[in-house]
């Protein structure tokens, strides 16, 4: 239980580290994706109940996993996918203009 939270915390730190310190645009995008995945992981994990079944009431089961965070996680995945698509499109465009993916060099070229 605690171990899973630790994994999530490590994933969030890895994502933030990549965003803050990497100079390559693609690595920054990957960092954002890791961060988002960690949050989605947190959503799914927080709805988990040991021994629970799918939240479809059929009469036999008493314990269900919480369906709300799962629904939220789905929405978050969709939003994450669209931002990633937009970002990658932007990265392609930046590469076409400046012929490099290094953010420092792009800034330098812009002056």
């Amino acid at each position: 239980m605690e171990l899973t939270y630790l994994v999530i915390a490590i994933l969030i730190c890895v994502g933030l580290y990549a965003i803050a310190s990497k100079r390559n645009l693609l690595k920054i995008v990957i960092g954002i994706n890791i961060l988002e995945s960690a949050v989605i992981f947190l959503f799914v994990f927080s709805s988990y109940r040991p021994g629970g079944t799918v939240p479809i009431i059929s009469g036999n089961h008493e314990l269900f996993v919480d369906p709300v965070p799962q629904a939220l996680a789905l929405t978050a995945i969709v939003i994450g996918a669209s931002t990633t698509a937009l970002m990658l499109g932007l990265v392609i465009e930046l590469y076409k203009r400046y012929d490099t993916l290094n953010i420092t060099e792009i800034r330098k070229m812009r002056g």
Binding site: I28, T83, M87, L90, L94
Partner: peptide
């Protein structure tokens, strides 16, 4: 100019 600014914005 909009490309780099927007990347920052997206981030």
């Amino acid at each position: 100019g909009s490309l780099e600014g927007t990347f920052k914005y997206l981030l």
